[in-house]
């Protein structure tokens, strides 16, 4: 029952976001801005650069350890999305066969370099995005977006997505179980029944939407959801933002790995 497992997995990310650690306490706005800038920096590297990207793992690793998030939970989710990145880069080694590096006498083509560069960038950006949710909680992100003047309609969409994702999944889970209980072998599991299942789910959701709308109207909804404002910037948040963005800037402009290598070289001699 992979479906069941996936379902509980989804709730797991939500459980993680309820922890109370140093990173969880940082203002969500700051975390969003810093993570966004982080992603911009990572993406700005040229396609053959690999070594200078490495120090950027500091940021996701910091979120992971300081946020007390289990590595496995994030790794799994990154792997689930990885085919996208793999297929973007998969043809690079075939088309780009210029030999650029020959470490220890092994020729390495530009294609392989750019392929790994894509994979590393992918791991960095996606793990940061997932970690951001794991250490902030979805409602926290929504509130931050609202405070950052993102159009309300989008924020409300996100809020409802989060709230009803679980309800809808629960509903789907019950339907899948009901089907399983009455289907034997491959009978009853044809694509035909699956299509029916999906369509029933859609109709139920539409009906549910109607009921929710009624519930909203009866509590005075007039086209606007006013979210409570609880966020307060603290001194620490600003320090965190300043330090991390400066770090990104330094790491982007000075190749830390190269510098460490050169220093070690000098010391050894």
């Amino acid at each position: 029952m992979t479906f069941d497992l996936e379902f509980f997995n989804l709730g797991y990310l939500d459980t993680l976001s309820n922890k109370d650690t140093l990173v969880h306490r940082i203002d969500p706005r700051i975390k969003i801005i810093v993570s966004f800038i982080f992603i911009l920096f990572v993406v700005s590297f040229q396609k053959y650069q690999i070594s200078s990207l490495m120090p950027f793992f500091l940021y996701p690793v910091f979120l992971l350890t300081a946020g007390d998030i289990p590595f496995k939970a994030i790794a799994k989710k990154v792997i689930v999305v990885s085919p996208f990145a793999l297929f973007i880069g998969i043809f690079n080694p075939i088309f780009d066969t210029n030999v650029i590096l020959t470490p220890f006498g092994i020729p390495v083509s530009g294609g392989w370099l750019s392929f790994f560069s894509i994979i590393i960038k992918f791991v960095l950006t996606v793990s940061t995005a997932i970690l951001l949710i794991a250490v902030t909680s979805f409602p926290g992100i929504c509130e931050a977006l609202e405070r950052m003047k993102v159009p309300k309609i989008f924020v409300i969409q996100l809020l409802f997505l989060y709230r009803y994702l679980f309800v809808l999944l629960d509903e789907a889970l019950r339907m899948v179980r009901a089907r399983e209980a009455r289907s034997f072998g491959s009978r009853g599991k044809e694509i035909r029944t699956f299509i029916r299942l999906i369509s029933v789910l859609l109709i139920r959701s539409v009906e549910r939407a109607e009921r929710i709308y009624r519930a909203m109207l009866s509590r005075g909804f007039r086209g606007e959801i006013r979210v409570l404002r609880r966020l307060h910037l603290r001194y620490f948040d600003i320090v965190f933002a300043a330090v991390s963005i400066t770090m990104f800037y330094i790491l982007r402009n000075y190749d830390a790995v190269d510098l460490i290598g050169a220093t070690l070289n000098r010391l050894l001699r």
Partner: peptide, 23 residues
């Protein structure tokens, strides 16, 4: 309403209870 899942539409209990009074 009959189904509490339809009635509770905000992401956090507090916000949900506050929805009406705010409006």
């Amino acid at each position: 309403f009959q189904r509490p899942d339809d009635q509770l539409f905000m992401p956090i209990v507090y916000e949900d209870v506050a929805f009406g009074p705010i409006n």
